[in-house]
Design a binder for these strands. Structure first.
Lengths: 139, 139
DNA sequence: TATTGTTATACTCTATAACTATA
DNA sequence: TATAGTTATAGAGTATAACAATA
């Protein structure tokens, strides 16, 4: 029986709320969270197929197909035929998509940094000490 | 120009990862997130009207009505007419709903609590001090 | 036959607009 | 006329099943 259930409860709620709040700042408000998540994955893993992306994002292929259709229409993703395998289409984030994701990350950091500036040095110090612990919990 | 950009960057990534990790270790599959969230709110605020609950959950009244219908069918919520105002129906979580939420929260917290048990008392103390700061940042 | 991507269809959660009953 | 709740309808995002093209 874990002894930290009450601490766990508070931490879980606080982390969920802050995570939601951070995600609210977006560079392109016409894009939903699944769109951002898929684009971010494509940025990380580079050229990939629909199936690979669907597996990465833990959704089905038809669902990811719909998301990719929308991203292609926005000009954030390019589909190109595979060189030797005619069944496959290779997906890749475009320069425009990459720029938009970069701007979004900057906006998120900016908002959070402004909140942190409003804290006292002692409070920032407490948060600094907590960050490695949060990282370790997430491992 | 905010001075806390580097702290912000670390905190943003740590919170996003931990949030994702906590969501992965969710054990309950019988209730969707909106159901769970609405029930949790009813548990916190006690007797309330549909409109109040919709505002609390930041959804529209028709959307919340649908969620409440389902919760009533499950036996987790009771609707009773208001004593003097015939337009109002008072909502309240049932004993069964309360029990179910308590069990679900325990399941969701189990993984995190086990991680926290593995920390030193000093580390848990650091996290305890950081939680109110995380809450304030999320406001 | 197996794999890749797509289309068809349905379910959930969300919204806006319109309706009923009551104040 | 205004308010509380409900019903009607529509738009995302998700799923499974069925299909076409290719290996």
């Amino acid at each position: 029986m874990p002894r930290s259930l009450s601490l766990s409860d508070e931490l879980r709620v606080a982390v969920a709320r802050l995570s939601r709040r951070i995600r609210q700042s977006r560079a392109d408000t016409t894009l939903s969270f699944p769109h951002y998540s898929a684009l971010g994955s494509m940025r990380m893993i580079g050229v990939c197929t629909l199936s690979e992306l669907a597996e990465q994002e833990q959704v089905t292929a038809p669902s990811m197909n719909r998301t990719v259709n929308s991203l292609v229409e926005h000009g954030y993703v390019a589909r190109t035929p595979h060189a030797s395998d005619g069944r496959k289409l290779m997906l890749e984030i475009t320069e425009s998509g990459d720029l938009m994701i970069e701007q979004t990350k900057r906006q998120r950091n900016l908002w959070l940094a402004e909140q942190l500036d409003a804290l006292t040095p002692a409070e920032r110090s407490t948060l600094s000490a907590a960050i490695p612990l949060l990282q370790r919990l997430a491992e």
